Amino acid sequence: MGSSAAPVIAVAGLTKRYTDVLAVHNVGLSLQAGQIYTLLGLNGAGKTTLIRMLLGMIAPTAGSARVLGTVVSAGQHSARQRLTWARTGYLVEAPAAYPELTVAENLHLCARLRQLKHPGRHVEDIIERLALTPYAGRRARTLSMGNL
């Protein structure tokens, strides 16, 4: 099923680091036209970050990417890159959380808005049941979309 045509997407050594978080590490792939691909991975695995780099929404820390033969560069709006965007469909999610609040603060707010009795107990229960303890004190804006 191989093809000698240039790949639709070609990625080499693509990496994205946010200070102390390695979101995407050394990704390399070559995707051909006419085939269907999917990205599978756990929450926080870097799927959305990879897509955003491929679309030129964010710059990689290292590596390179080509989409439809065009080198992807964040922040550059050349005629060729605009044409590439016009031929590419994408939808990046928006979180349903207050980005400046922590996970626990967002949950407390929801509990208050729903007028739950003993909101603290409900929040503690949710944090435990959803294994959010490592994230409870983190601001929502720092989380992977899969965590929101």
Rank of each mutant, 00 (worst) to 15 (best):
M1A: 13
S4E: 14
A5M: 09
A6Q: 13
V8L: 08
V11R: 03
A12K: 11
A12F: 08
A12T: 15
T15W: 02
R17C: 02
R17V: 15
Y18R: 09
Y18I: 14
Y18A: 12
T19S: 14
D20M: 04
L22C: 08
A23C: 06
A23R: 01
A23K: 01
A23M: 03
V24L: 05
V24E: 07
H25L: 10
V27Q: 03
V27D: 09
L29D: 11
S30L: 04
L31H: 03
L31V: 14
Q32D: 14
Y37S: 05
L39T: 10
L39D: 06
L39N: 05
L40Y: 05
G41W: 02
L42K: 09
G44N: 06
T48M: 06
T49W: 08
L50M: 13
L50D: 12
I51D: 10
L54S: 12
G56C: 06
I58A: 09
P60C: 07
P60K: 01
A62K: 03
A62D: 15
R66C: 12
V67G: 05
V67R: 00
V67K: 00
T70C: 09
V71W: 01
V71L: 10
S73R: 12
A74E: 14
Q76W: 02
S78T: 15
S78L: 04
S78M: 03
R80I: 13
T84F: 01
T84L: 05
T84H: 00
T84K: 04
W85P: 01
W85A: 07
W85D: 04
A86E: 13
A86P: 08
R87N: 14
G89D: 12
G89M: 07
G89S: 11
L91N: 06
V92W: 00
E93D: 15
A94L: 09
A94F: 02
P95E: 13
A96H: 07
L101E: 07
T102L: 00
H108L: 06
C110R: 03
C110A: 13
C110L: 13
A111S: 05
R112H: 07
R112N: 07
L113A: 11
R114S: 14
Q115F: 09
L116M: 10
L116D: 11
L116N: 08
H118I: 10
H118L: 10
P119L: 10
P119G: 03
G120K: 04
V123T: 08
D125H: 12
I127P: 04
E128P: 05
E128W: 06
T133S: 10
Y135H: 14
G137A: 13
G137I: 00
R139F: 09
R139Q: 15
T142K: 01
T142E: 15
T142D: 12
L143D: 11
M145A: 10
G146N: 04
N147G: 01
N147H: 14
L148S: 12
